[in-house]
């Protein structure tokens, strides 16, 4: 599984999306059982995460947010250490001090996760600035955020500075239609965040965020542009948060017709059907992937549950360097 993290073949991307789905559902299930805090799942948004991450190289860095499991798993994070972090265990990526909301993993190039909506946008410029100060560096800094963050003032400050300073940032807006409990239509006079990015003079694209192959192609082109020009590129992936803002959430505020329409374009089903149609996947093959991913998550849950909590002395460590 983990060695596949840079494999951009459709089957490998399908497997990662299914791993993310199995992870999110397992974590939501633990939360529903009352033994873990609720998490913000990325169910329905797997294609955006996997399509972009597969377009990045190991030397590239990413910044993410509270809805981060897809990005982390697509980057090759160990699901066991992720769930351990969600459960507040010592074996988590952040020693249990983050919980689900701000998991970063420096060893994977996942830096400075912020759960303050828009926080990652304010930090990505600095991470990219560091790269510009290294002679010959061609690395890309990808930062993930949603349409909610695009309504924060710092979104515009970030894009403006990145354009002015020529910073190698791939802005990935996962426009999932929901800003916590408010639909994007109530908060934005435009359909697409792309138009705001373009207003800052940044090359900006909107793509079908539920089609992982489309996302991957667009992200690959964007990454190549950034490597060559050292200028930011903005990529908007239109997608949908099919579960609630956090677990549990009855989604009583969601229009059932809209939800059904997006579920009909589920990113995993979309790719699986395409692969089936041209003979690259059959039912047995799909079942094997499903079995593998669920087994990996079962093992991860067992590892996390068996892991110890931090020592209480950890309460006041890691405050100062």
């Amino acid at each position: 599984m983990r060695q596949a993290e840079h494999d951009p073949s459709p089957l490998a991307m399908l497997e990662t999306m299914m791993l993310i789905r199995a992870y999110e559902e397992a974590v939501a299930g633990i939360a529903a059982g009352g033994t873990a805090p609720g998490t913000c799942t990325s169910v329905g948004q797997e294609a955006a995460a996997v399509g972009v991450l597969r377009a990045l190289a190991r030397r590239d860095q990413i910044l993410t947010n509270h809805r981060s499991a897809g990005h982390l798993l697509a980057r090759g994070a160990d699901p066991g250490r992720l769930i351990a972090e969600v459960l507040g265990k010592r074996t988590g990526y952040c020693k249990g001090k983050s919980g689900s909301l701000h998991i970063s993993a420096a060893e994977l190039g996942v830096v400075l996760t912020s759960t303050i909506v828009g926080g990652e946008l304010s930090l990505a410029t600095g991470v990219a600035l560091s790269r510009t100060m290294k002679p010959g560096d061609d690395g890309v800094v990808a930062t993930f955020f949603g349409d909610g963050a695009a309504c924060e003032g710092v979104f515009h400050e970030s894009l403006n500075l990145a354009a002015m300073w020529s910073l190698p940032i791939l802005y990935v807006c996962e426009n999932n239609q929901w800003q916590a409990f408010v639909h994007r239509r109530e908060t934005m006079p435009v359909e697409h965040v792309r138009t705001w990015a373009a207003a800052h003079g940044i090359e900006a694209h909107t793509v079908d965020g539920n089609d992982v192959e489309v996302v991957h192609a667009a992200a690959s082109a964007a990454v190549a542009r950034i490597r060559a020009t050292r200028k930011p590129v903005f990529l908007e992936a239109l997608t949908y948060r099919t579960r609630g803002h956090y677990e549990p959430d009855d989604q009583a505020y969601v229009d059932p017709a809209e939800l059904a329409a997006w579920r009909a374009r589920d990113p995993i089903e979309l790719l699986a059907q395409r692969l089936r149609a041209d003979g690259r996947l059959d039912d047995a093959g799909f079942a094997r992937i499903s079995l593998r991913t669920h087994a990996a998550i079962d093992e991860a849950v067992a590892f996390a549950k068996a892991s110890p909590f931090p020592e209480l002395s950890e309460l006041v460590t890691d405050v100062y360097a």
């Binding site: 304010s122 930090l123 991470v127």
Partner: peptide, 16 residues
């Protein structure tokens, strides 16, 4: 000021 400070935070975390 937000992006000035945030840029400093991101830069500080990555070697500057």
């Amino acid at each position: 000021e937000g992006i000035i400070a945030g840029t400093a935070v991101g830069a500080a975390a990555t070697g500057l």
